[in-house]
């Protein structure tokens, strides 16, 4: 079976495993365009994964995200469902960097904005944050208004960028 994951640096990992009586064997593994030779093995031990170097990983899946604690560090890897390219659908969408309340919408639909221009002011946990335009562009859609409570990752604005 083959699965694709995306890490914190938006790097894509593809892992192909075959199952046997003793667990799983790595058939192939790649990071971006690079093929990786794998000499570690891993097997499931209850709710943990035991690696052949003797270390254990604690894992948990929330939505499409695998959260993993290993060697004292925590990582999040997003499972990419086959046929979905997550980098495509986020093009031009500006999302809330944190959950919170929209304090001010500083632009209107159809407005031409410049890179670096502040578009939205939001607040959470006593902290203010400005959402700025990453590129020059046109405000295609405004998906929030003043006073709205938004979740982290909620799309706030659709911006048509430069080609």
């Amino acid at each position: 079976m083959q699965n694709e994951f995306q890490d914190c640096n938006s790097e894509k990992w593809v892992v192909t495993l075959s199952s046997s009586a003793h667990g799983f064997t790595v058939e192939a593994m790649s990071r971006g365009a690079e093929n990786i030779a794998v000499d570690v093995r891993a097997e499931r031990k209850g709710s943990k994964i035991l690696l052949s170097d003797g270390t254990m990983a604690t894992l948990c899946k929330v939505g499409d995200d695998w959260w993993i604690h290993h060697s004292g560090r925590t990582h999040k890897l997003q499972l990419i469902e086959p046929g979905l390219d997550s980098s495509e659908d986020s093009e031009g969408s500006l999302v809330a960097p944190m959950p919170g309340t929209i304090l001010d919408v500083m632009v209107t639909r159809g407005e031409q904005v410049a890179a670096g221009q502040a578009l939205i002011l939001m607040e959470a946990m006593k902290m203010e944050h400005k959402v700025v335009a990453p590129t020059d562009g046109l405000i295609e859609a405004l998906l929030c208004s003043q006073g709205d409570r938004v979740e982290q990752g909620a799309v706030l604005i659709e911006l048509s960028g430069k080609e």
């Binding site: 699965n3 994951f5 890490d7 990992w13 892992v15 495993l17 667990g23 799983f24 790595v26 593994m29 990071r31 794998v38 570690v40 891993a42 097997e43 499931r44 994964i49 690696l51 170097d53 270390t55 990983a57 894992l59 899946k61 695998w66 993993i68 290993h70 990582h75 890897l77």
Partner: peptide, 9 residues
């Protein structure tokens, strides 16, 4: 290792 553990999970 981490990616492998996730893939096996």
């Amino acid at each position: 290792d981490v990616v492998l553990a996730v893939a096996v999970a």
